[in-house]
Write a protein that binds this DNA or RNA. Sequence first.
DNA 1: TTTAAATAGTGTATAAATTACACTAACTAA
DNA 2: TTAGTTAGTGTAATTTATACACTATTTAAA
Lengths: 233, 233
Amino acid sequence: MSNENIFYPHVSVDCVVFGFDGEKLKVILIERTINEQNELYNDKKLPGSLIFNEEDLDVSANRVLTELTGLKNIYLSQFRTFGSPDRTKNPRDVLWLENTTKLKIGRIITTGYVAMVKIDRKLQFNSDTTTAKWHDVAEVAKMSLAFDHNEIIQWGLKHIRNQVEIQPHLLFELLPTKFTISQLRTLYDVINQVKSDVRNFQKKVAQMPYVVALDELEKGVPHRAARLYRYKK
Amino acid sequence: MSNENIFYPHVSVDCVVFGFDGEKLKVILIERTINEQNELYNDKKLPGSLIFNEEDLDVSANRVLTELTGLKNIYLSQFRTFGSPDRTKNPRDVLWLENTTKLKIGRIITTGYVAMVKIDRKLQFNSDTTTAKWHDVAEVAKMSLAFDHNEIIQWGLKHIRNQVEIQPHLLFELLPTKFTISQLRTLYDVINQVKSDVRNFQKKVAQMPYVVALDELEKGVPHRAARLYRYKK
DNA sequence: TTTAAATAGTGTATAAATTACACTAACTAA
DNA sequence: TTAGTTAGTGTAATTTATACACTATTTAAA
């Protein structure tokens, strides 16, 4: 192996945080502002950043997520690492990187993490120049995000689809503590890209010992109120 | 973000190549020799190496696999990145790294790839000091490999188990071109850690349009010969 | 040449899971 | 009172999964 081919890339983590608003899948994006020849340009990106020395990847992902969104104690699950040399070929991305890190950046290898969180969790951020907000996943697919973040989101989506199939319990991470079967079904359908039959779905839920009915109905709807359920254990 | 926390790790790839000998799951390991204070020490590790500048991770994994095993045109699938700062805490590993790369190595982030190959493919290698060989996965679990390679193999195993469930076609990557149903069943059982019923398994295979019976029997067995099948499409 | 040993190969009945399908119930607002 | 909106319920048919035991074929040894 010849030494001159070896180089020192930077390493980062990016977090794809999914939420569900009762109707659509959402993802958290950070707004970034780039000062390009004194023209301000606005853009969106995933919450992510370079890792620290002596910091494990998982730890880094948690730190970065908290720094950029205020979310704490979120279960983040690694899904894929993106290492194309083309990742930093967009001059706008390079400009932004060098401005925010004060480093000369050549190449960045980034590891993607997914999380599924209840959408009512408050997003806070401790930087003046970034804003974390929920966006429709479907809308985001049409936008042009920083770096290869569109691609990263698609892989993240694929990952949670697989994960939910193996561990259906994960669905409840996305629902409010009290939810209707209708909400659960809509979520199930959005994730699995299917259209479930209402009666068959009720039957399926009835067989889930971990979904327990409450003596409570939803409120504030202009029609018959649905029964509320919660996830147990 | 403060600059002094940012550092420059090395990035590598490691390949977990699975095979099947008709009975047990196998994995390719490389033998390495470490000269430790003029004592030679032998050891095993996964085929892996540092990536080159401007080289995509996937490309790198293929290059490294070919360099260390002679295997070409193998479908490698990324499964997880290992980034603990403790990865390079074993002095023996550091010694070996610095001898082979002639670089001062601090930390290495490595991305794991899995492949499934027919075990009759010949292993060649173009280095005098390394030897690639098949080993029983179960035996390897009891050995102490270089770096965190034991852990990497376990994650790789988990990955192919999931993948095979989603894509049963992958099983045929591990079988010879012509195989018996018995071999297919044994492989299925080893991968899924189950014990299938012979009759039910035959039924299952009969429903796989991509497994076609040949007008041919296995040879050289000291009992009734089984019919051969092949994978189609 | 007979017999033992080893593995191949076959069918049926039961249970469980999945699918298809249409109407009544409850509440709100006009 | 009525129209609009969503909640909630059962049954039959099909498909899939499971449990289970004997005969067939070949080789090698007695």
